[in-house]
């Protein structure tokens, strides 16, 4: 036991690896620091989102440039699913994955702060979401102009309102950040994805109700009036393209002294003669139709998008002040 070897020895008994001679080649560095880590970790998901969006935009642009409307409806449905898909597959696993398999511990024990980690992950994800949804929104909006002229799709419909302008980006951001928060709370990827699916579907349904029952009531109503009488065939005056007629229960007839009369006026008249006589007796001089002109669309879209972005900001604040402590 108490012998001592005098042979010069190397301090390592293992031979240097055949794979690791010399310095490692420097990897290409499009990103640095935390950005590199977040991009590297989620690059598959990010590229999938960006690639799929690029394909969809290419399809839309091609159809539009060919003046085709084929595939418009299915594309519109697909776009409305996008916030759900992004929330479930991008938002929910963003931190839940790290919390589930322990890599959160690995990251927060490096020299960068967890605020930085949270910020970088949210910022890169938001960037990918915004880039893809804005590209789709612009493309779809362009296609809708064509579609609108040929089929007069109303701008107030969800298929138009929610898929163009700033609304898709805002809807997607809220769904994704909601998914992120759910992931931070539940800390299990699959459970978080399932709950996020429920959350984003509820958001979509609630949003449709909000649009139909509240948002449009904020728009200022325009009225088109005529003085050429109301023919027996009830041919209404033509509304401007894309305009949405407000409410079928609004009295559509206007009298000589400006009174409005409802649909029931002269309903009992069975013949054209009786009808014209009845209308004359009621002093109906023409139509008075309320509608929401398309010029309101942009303002309402930005208004509603800002509501969604405020909700997203609230979720973000929650993540920073409460969720940050749970990130390990």
């Amino acid at each position: 036991m108490s012998s001592l070897t005098s042979t010069p020895t190397t301090t390592r008994s293992t031979a240097p690896g055949t794979t690791g001679t010399g310095r490692l080649p420097q990897l290409p560095q499009p990103f640095k620091g935390m950005t590199w880590l977040v991009w590297r970790q989620h690059r598959a998901a990010f590229w999938t989102v960006l690639g799929a969006s690029a394909l969809a935009v290419a399809f839309i642009v091609f159809q539009r440039s060919q003046l085709h409307t084929a595939g418009y409806d299915s594309t519109s449905t697909g776009l409305r699913l996008m916030p759900i898909l992004l929330g479930v597959f991008l938002g929910a696993p963003l931190f839940a994955g790290d919390l589930e398999n322990g890599t959160a511990k690995l990251v927060v024990t490096q020299s960068a702060s967890r605020t930085r980690w949270l910020t970088t992950k949210l910022a890169l994800t938001a960037l990918v979401v915004v880039v893809s949804t804005v590209a789709l929104s612009v493309g779809f909006g362009w296609w809708w102009n064509l579609y609108d002229e040929s089929t007069s799709a109303e701008w107030t419909s969800g298929a138009t309102f929610n898929n163009t302008g700033p609304v898709p980006a805002a809807l997607a951001l809220f769904s994704v950040f909601g998914g992120v928060a759910i992931g931070v709370v539940l800390r299990r990827t699959l459970v978080a994805m399932a709950v996020t699916l429920g959350f984003t579907v509820v958001v979509q349904i609630a949003w449709s109700h909000f649009l139909a029952h509240f948002l449009l009531s904020l728009a200022s109503v325009a009225t088109i009036t005529t003085n050429k009488g109301v023919p027996f065939q009830h041919v209404m005056p033509t509304l401007p393209p894309g305009a949405h007629q407000v409410n079928w229960s609004t009295p559509p007839y206007i009298t000589g002294d400006g009174k409005l009369l409802g649909w029931s006026t002269c309903n009992e008249a069975q013949t054209e003669q009786a009808h014209d006589l009845c209308m004359k007796k009621a002093d109906v001089v023409g139509w008075s139709v309320d509608y929401l002109p398309i010029s309101q669309m942009n303002g309402l879209q930005w208004f509603s998008a800002s509501i969604l972005l405020a909700l997203t900001a609230a979720v973000t604040v929650l993540l920073f002040f409460w969720g940050r402590k749970r990130l390990a």
Binding site: M1, L4, T9
Partner: peptide, 22 residues
């Protein structure tokens, strides 16, 4: 001269003493 100590963990002798003795 670089020498190497042989530390026996099961000998019951503390490593400190083994180094001194060797």
């Amino acid at each position: 001269v670089i020498v190497e100590f042989r530390i026996n963990r099961r000998s019951g002798v503390p490593a400190f003493q083994q180094i001194v003795q060797q």
